[in-house]
């Protein structure tokens, strides 16, 4: 990993005082929708999917070169997940996920900035049962998105974000039951919040 990317992230985490002026923090709330976690066939097709869930995101970034920043973003969401077969749904409980994404951002248009990164996504089921019988899962995550900012206070911006991320889902229990490969899962989130101004 390039030093220009890693070093600022570590300093950001450490809260280096000398870099305070260049550091930007934000928090947002929103909702996440995800594609199917799993497709299975027992007599007929079964799909498992997370419901649209509320999420919170916090993050920070710091300048690495004019116009470009590196940062960390953590998200947490909690919502139900269900199985569906022949148009009948079964509640499978609550699923919490947390992600940590190390990313880069840059200018896109006047108030718009792009963002892209990679990290990890953790699944924490409320109950170790079913597809999570052997526990949760941690998966590699890649994501991208755009942030829109509009000044609302002297040092604060209103921030609206659109995110897309992608990972391959499986669990230890699915592996144990001879499921092959992994399931492509896409997630899209929309969120709004406040960011300490970049100005």
């Amino acid at each position: 990993m390039p030093k220009s990317f890693l070093l600022p992230a570590l300093l950001l985490l450490a809260g280096a005082p000398g870099l305070e002026a260049q550091t930007d923090y934000y928090a947002r709330v929103g909702a996440v929708g995800a594609s199917n976690l799993l497709r299975d066939v027992i007599v007929s097709e079964i799909t498992v999917r997370q419901a649209i869930a509320p999420m919170v995101a916090v993050g920070g970034s710091m300048t690495i070169s004019p116009g470009y920043r590196a940062g960390l973003e953590a998200t947490f969401l909690s919502g139900g997940y269900h199985g569906e077969q022949d148009e009948e749904e079964t509640d499978l409980g609550t699923l919490r996920t947390g992600s940590l994404l190390l990313g880069l951002e840059g200018p896109l248009a006047a108030s718009l900035r792009w963002r892209a990164g990679a990290g990890a996504l953790m699944y924490w089921p409320s109950e170790e049962a079913g597809i999570f019988l052997q526990g949760g899962a941690t998966r590699f995550l890649a994501g991208a998105g755009a942030d829109y900012r509009r000044p609302v206070l002297a040092r604060w911006d209103l921030m609206a974000s659109l995110r897309y991320d992608y990972h391959r889902f499986t669990t230890e229990e699915l592996d144990r039951r001879d499921f092959a490969q992994t399931q492509a899962v896409s997630r899209v989130s929309l969120s709004v919040g406040l960011a300490r101004s970049l100005r």
Partner: peptide, 12 residues
């Protein structure tokens, strides 16, 4: 194939 394929359920 790994990037695009879906999970494959076992033959039961």
């Amino acid at each position: 194939a790994v990037a695009c394929g879906d999970i494959a359920s076992p033959v039961r």
